[in-house]
Design a protein around this nucleic acid. Structure first.
Lengths: 243, 243
DNA sequence: GAAAAGCTGTGATCGGAGTCACTGGGCCTG
DNA sequence: CAGGCCCAGTGACTCCGATCACAGCTTTTC
């Protein structure tokens, strides 16, 4: 089995070990076999662009390994992160269904594997297997929920510190496993986004993110060592969040 | 045929005159027949609440007549409009599919008719008729696109005047029919939202909306007479918008 | 038709956060 | 190891827009 980019490439969907835990891929065997036929697997380094906002839709991507950020950009070059896609998600659905340009630029945040399926193949695939339609509906539902969450976050939070606290707490829902030498109520998380990207996520400027994080650190709420952040005072962070 | 609320109630989906122009209802006859069996038609006055944010999902609504606004509210009572739903849309899909509380409060903006379908009936309906799945995917796609547009509007526009100009121009895409006594390049639109609601739409305060509209009027770009607004200088409004 | 409730217009004030400008640290690369 | 590049931290300044406060209007209600 091929190895590259420091992860194992999944060439055969029917034998994928993660399948059951994934939003899209947990399909009946027949459908999986068909998927196997129409997919084209690619491997991308960090920072690769799967598609560009404004391009005509060519097809959809199933993200097998790695995470990717979906961003949209204004005419002046200011950009905002719509969401971070996790392994198992299908990307590009809205473009394909509305036959309109891709809504977002998709950029890998880590070395990633993705399966591409062309528009026509995918439409037939969906017609032939009703389960696929359900999965698609679930993915679209997930997209909507993320988008609504984002709208709430940007539109209803009154201050930037609040938004950032909210974001950190959301990340804390998937903490790193507890290690030795950590106090009981501390939570460690892995943050691979730059401050610039965090700024784009909450719709603010890079400098403000820097200031807010400094502030959290000075208050003893947060410790940041490279990509490992430790939440020292979860309660205080939660007090910032009103929504 | 029953009359009420100043519009004609559509009791039989199979005979609905608007069906073909609607996002959801244009289904094969068999599916329509089934829809006819499982739907429960209700008529609502202006300002009625179809469902409340946070409620457990009971089912979906097909909006037959009238428009409705979907809002989400923060703990402090600040609320934001996610979108305005048009006749023919299905509402409540995300809640039903994720079996999670309704994401938004749905309030009619006009006297409206809506068909309610319970969660279990709808799931069966979808399983039995693949066309329904496609319609659902299209509706969800539409929701996503609206949400992304909203994120762009709130997150990427730099100033409130720009957002309001953008909104007015969006409305201008569905202008009122030209009437006598209007100059050739003028566009008339019907605006039934209050300034408060416009504020919720663009994520700002009511006072700011008032000031911005006053400003547009003073500059001779816009005339407002009750619910009828006339765009006098579309070019200038477009110059405000950069995205 | 008077009272009440809701919508709109405007002034005054103040603070949050965007912008500009610069510094310093980490990391890669030739 | 010097130079470049990217990321992070921080000060100073400015300004947009939220908030408060109130007055004129319109629409509903009894």
């Amino acid at each position: 089995m091929a190895m590259s980019y420091n992860f194992r490439i999944i060439e055969d969907c029917t034998k994928c070990a993660f399948r059951e835990h994934r939003l899209f891929c947990n399909l009946p065997n027949k459908a999986l076999g068909r998927l196997q036929d129409i997919k084209a697997t690619s491997v991308y380094p960090k920072g690769a662009l799967l598609c560009l906002e404004g391009q005509a839709p060519r097809g959809i991507f199933v993200l097998c390994t790695g995470r990717a950020k979906l961003t949209t950009t204004s005419a002046e070059g200011k950009s905002i992160i719509l969401r971070i896609a996790e392994p198992g998600e299908v990307l590009g659905l809205t473009a394909v269904f509305s036959n309109a340009p891709y809504e977002a630029t998709i950029e890998t945040l880590e070395p990633s594997q993705a399966n591409f399926i062309s528009m026509t193949d995918f439409v037939h695939f969906m017609k032939d297997y009703p389960d696929v339609g359900m999965k698609v509906a679930q993915q679209l539902t997930h997209n909507c929920r993320c988008a609504y969450g984002e709208i709430r976050s940007i539109g209803l939070s009154n201050s930037v510190p609040e938004k950032i606290a909210k974001l950190v707490l959301k990340w804390a829902e998937q903490p790193l496993p507890a290690s030795t030498g950590r106090k009981p109520n501390e939570v460690a998380i892995r943050v691979t986004l730059t401050q610039e990207e965090i700024a784009q996520f909450v719709g603010t400027s890079r400098e403000t993110v820097s200031r807010v994080l400094s502030d959290f650190r000075k208050k003893g709420w947060l410790r940041m060592k490279g990509v490992i952040w430790t939440i020292l005072d979860k309660d205080s962070l939660e007090d910032m969040v009103t929504t």
